[in-house]
Simulated scan of single mutants.
Amino acid sequence: MRNLLRTLIVGVFAFVALCSLSACSSGSSTEAASSTTSTQPVGATPAPFPTSARYMADMEADGKKMTIGISVDGDEIAAYACNGIDDEAWFFGNQADGAIDITSKFHDALTASFNGTDITGDLTMNGTKYAFSAASVSDPAGMYTAELDGVRASWIVRPDGSVTGVQFNGGISGRDFEQAELQQLNAAQFQAQVRNKRILQQADQSVSLQNGTLISKINGRNVTGKVVTGTTRFA
């Protein structure tokens, strides 16, 4: 009887030890799985652009306001930024895998990427760097431009119908600079001798939109502006 009792007691202790070991093993496995899941990297690769789309943003830096519009058609990009008073920049180029890196004719810089919803990036104009997040917009919102007798007016029309635009009247020393000449100028010289020689003013604010065209005026004369797409190009 005593031997039987001893055997039962030993069996009970062995069973308890086995259960404890199993529980510990199960807990370690769960913790390891949780740790692996929490350390998965988050992808930062730009998303592919839609086939055709428009984006827009208002921004401010150092007390200066700027508005940008971006049109995408396939791989081609056209972007326009202006302050609605006396500064503007046009960007023409291509996007690659959802990323944009374009320098304008007047040494302004646009770098951005598409996150699947908005275009986020930086715009550098006349020494000021603006950060922006441009949301998609639909007709009739977008960028429009018109020319008359060598004068070009450009407008960014927001979804609420408000307008920001600048008129370019020429005035770059009366001639175009050769590329070799430009390369000899440092940043300060380029700003003074080329970029800031442009004659710019606020574009006419009385605009109306009709079937994808913009009706306005340049120097008091009626003009019809066309919407800017990703394939728009001019000198």
Results as ranks from 00 to 15, higher is better:
Gly171Asp: 10
Val163Cys: 02
Thr224Pro: 01
Arg152Pro: 02
Asn222Pro: 11
Gln40Asp: 07
Thr120Pro: 08
Lys129Tyr: 08
Ser136Val: 08
Ala61Ser: 03
Gly74Arg: 09
Asp176Leu: 15
Asp149Thr: 03
Glu147Ser: 12
Phe106Arg: 09
Ala17Asp: 06
Thr164Ser: 15
Pro48Ser: 11
Lys217Thr: 15
Ala96Thr: 12
Leu18Ala: 06
Ile77Tyr: 02
Asp97Ile: 13
Asp62Glu: 14
Val163Ile: 07
Met66Leu: 13
Gly225Lys: 01
Ser138Val: 13
Leu18Phe: 06
Ala134Cys: 05
Thr7Cys: 14
Met1Trp: 09
Phe234Trp: 03
Gln201Lys: 13
Phe15Gly: 08
Gln179Pro: 01
Ala81Tyr: 00
Ala47Thr: 07
Gln191Ala: 14
Ile77Met: 04
Arg175Lys: 13
Val228Met: 11
Asp160Phe: 05
Glu60Leu: 13
Thr111His: 12
Glu178Phe: 13
Asp73Gln: 12
Gly69Trp: 01
Gln189Val: 07
Glu31Thr: 14
Pro140Lys: 05
Asp139Met: 14
Phe190Gln: 01
Ser162Arg: 03
Thr37Lys: 13
Ala192Met: 10
Thr111Trp: 01
Gly84Ser: 12
Ile68Phe: 04
Ser104Asp: 00
Ser113Ala: 15
Ile199Asp: 09
Trp155Ile: 07
Pro46Ala: 12
Val194Gln: 10
Leu8Thr: 11
Gln210Gly: 05
Val163Tyr: 00
Phe177Gln: 12
Ala17Arg: 13
Asn219Pro: 01
Leu21Phe: 09
Pro46Asp: 05
Ala180Ile: 12
Gly127Asn: 07
Glu178Ser: 07
Cys19Arg: 13
Asn211Trp: 11
Arg2His: 15
Val16Leu: 15
Val228Pro: 00
Ile9Lys: 08
Ser162Pro: 04
Arg195Cys: 00
Ser71His: 08
Pro140Asn: 11
Gly43Ser: 15
Ser35Tyr: 07
Leu5Asn: 11
Ala141Phe: 04
Thr30His: 14
Ile215Trp: 06
Asp75Gln: 15
Pro159Asn: 04
Ile172Val: 15
Val137Thr: 11
Arg6Thr: 11
Ile156Met: 04
Asp86Pro: 02
Leu182Ser: 10
Arg198Ser: 06
Asn126Phe: 11
Gly74Val: 03
Ala33Ser: 11
Ala57Thr: 08
Ala79Pro: 00
Glu76Met: 14
Arg152Ser: 08
Asn169Pro: 02
Glu181Gly: 09
Asn211Leu: 15
Asp73Tyr: 03
Asp58Pro: 02
Ile9Met: 15
Thr224Phe: 01
Val42Ser: 11
Lys226Tyr: 00
Phe49Arg: 00
Gln205Trp: 04
Pro159Ser: 10
Ala53Val: 05
Thr103Phe: 08
Gly171Tyr: 04
Asp139Ile: 09
Arg195Gln: 06
Phe91Lys: 02
Phe190Ser: 02
Asn115Pro: 02
Ala53Asp: 07
Met56Gly: 11
Tyr55Pro: 00
Phe92Ser: 04
Met59Asp: 10
Asn211Thr: 02
Leu209Ser: 08
Met56Tyr: 15
Asp58Ala: 10
Ala89Thr: 00
Ile102Met: 10
Met59Thr: 15
